[in-house]
Amino acid sequence: MDKTLKIGWLFPNTFSLHGDRGNILAIRAEGVRRGYRVEIDQINLDTKEFNPLDYDFIFCPPGEIVHFEAVIAFLKPHREAFITFIENHPMLVTGTSIGVFGKKINRNDKTIINGLGLIGLEVNENHAVYGDDLYYICEYNGNKMEIIGNQIQMMDADINEESPFGYLKYGYGNTGKTKFEGAKSGKAIFTNTLGPLLVCNPWLTEEIMNLIETNKELPVWEEKRDNSLEVNSLKTKVALIEKKESRLISVDER
């Protein structure tokens, strides 16, 4: 059995906004805890040989929209491979980069960038930035869980007929007008949750790792991680959410 996990980190330098490197640290730490050797490949615009199917997990952090066209041009030849990859393999795409994998990015200067079309969503760049906490329920790899994080919304995501990744308990989510947070397609997660999502929510990291083990026909690790620190973190952040002033339409009214 192959005891090496291969992680693909897309465009770590071109796309780096919100301490997203934390997600790589979290997945690596969980892999190491389960006794695997974890290899992290940084994929950039100069990478000569890239095949999504070489990886067990792919992470794409959020980036500035100004770089999208160059990134999409790089990824386009691999579109079919990505479609195959996300059928069974976990992929995490956060923040603005959702747009790269969607159909269209409508910029506020009226220009349009065509995305990879891996998922049927469209994004619309906003004139103003919205930043807040984000708290929702989702299901991944057959397990329901709560996710806590932050959102810096540069653009709204219209997920059309796609399934949302989560259902909001608090936060702006995709548009500030629905209960939906992000989207999912196959085993790929497209979420507005920024920064070290997998650090703050190790229960999601564990499910991603369980899925990797299943894909590799490895026994699923049974010894649970001690998540007490992260549970305390979630509780105190939920306490902030419950007491703070908000100008959002309440989730119940959406």
Partner: peptide, 11 residues
Amino acid sequence: VPHYANTFYAF
């Protein structure tokens, strides 16, 4: 408003 709990820049 809204206040929020962001420390992600530390990463």
